[in-house]
Amino acid sequence: MSIMHKESIQYWHNPILPEVELSRANFKQFEFDRHVHLDYHIGVVSSGCQQYSHRGSAYHLGPGLISSLNPDETHNGQSYTSEGYQVHVMSVPYHYVSQISQEVSQTEGFFHTPLIDDNHLYQAFLKLHMMLTQHQSNLSSLQIETSMLAFTTELFLRHGNVPEQATDKNNALSQSQIKEVMAMFHDDPGQEFLLETLANSVGLSKFQFLRRFKQSIGMTPHAYLKRVRLEYAKKALIKGGNVADIAHRVGFFDQSHLNKAFKQAYLITPAHFQRRVL
């Protein structure tokens, strides 16, 4: 099956992560000469197959695999077949990965191999790439930062020189820290929360807070807050009122945003739920 007929490439910068460069391209005949990148270069192919050379060896990047290139590593790239390929790429700044390495007491993040076979992370990458490149007004800063940090950390824990045992699995938030964060969420669920603000409130870095919160609660801060907002929406719907007003009051961008999240959580729309209980 033919993948594409025209060479094309698109670039994005998400305003929440302005230093992360994102691209999606369709290539059939175009070939990359040998080159290097200043950042960590992570890429996946969603259709077709790319071939590239790295340190004298040839690699084939097809669906399900991840290309993982460290800064300053020479490589090239071209289509493996005449059908062409579609590739999704993310360039992650050196200092972003360096911060993760420092948090887990490692001197430097470094990929062991330029090709990773990990379908779980492949799917996670495609989901994250779509999240960061689509112009969705209903994505919060907390959701984007959490998703990016979680993916990058897991990628290096699984396939970098950061060992899993470097993190303390029992290092959860204290009860007072949990109460502090929960109070912020419950006192005003409609406000926009930033990962840095939440972390600072309990004296932790963003990395430490994200991992300890998930260890303590079993959910990311964004997932927990989303559920809290839905629970408050249910209570408000039971008391009556306009669905759109309720959506804004509990922190959703609009009624459509609430409808989607509500139905995903409760298998019913807010309006239908309200008709049932009033």
Rank of each mutant, 00 (worst) to 15 (best):
Q255G: 09
F30D: 02
P270W: 02
P71W: 01
H248Y: 11
Q136R: 15
V89L: 07
A25E: 06
L149T: 01
K226P: 07
F273D: 02
R34T: 13
N200E: 12
Q99G: 14
P114K: 05
S2Q: 13
F253K: 13
H248I: 07
V228D: 08
F125Y: 12
Q255I: 05
E231H: 10
L278V: 10
G48V: 00
N76K: 03
P221K: 05
M148H: 12
L204D: 05
V250P: 00
P270T: 02
E154S: 10
L198N: 01
G190F: 04
R212C: 06
V277Q: 11
F207T: 12
G77K: 04
Y85I: 04
D72T: 09
Y224M: 08
R158K: 14
I268K: 13
L17A: 06
I268N: 06
K28Y: 05
L204P: 04
S98C: 06
K235N: 13
I9E: 12
N119Y: 12
R55Q: 15
H75I: 00
A199G: 06
F32A: 12
V97Y: 05
V250G: 03
N242G: 00
Q255S: 14
S98Q: 15
G77Q: 02
R275Q: 15
V87T: 11
Q255F: 05
L121D: 04
T197S: 10
E145C: 10
E164K: 12
F110L: 11
A261Q: 09
R276K: 14
L267Q: 15
V36D: 07
T113M: 10
I16M: 08
A247Q: 01
Q191R: 14
L17D: 02
Q106S: 13
F110S: 08
G251W: 00
E21C: 06
H54N: 09
S105P: 00
D254E: 02
A244I: 03
G240K: 06
Y52E: 01
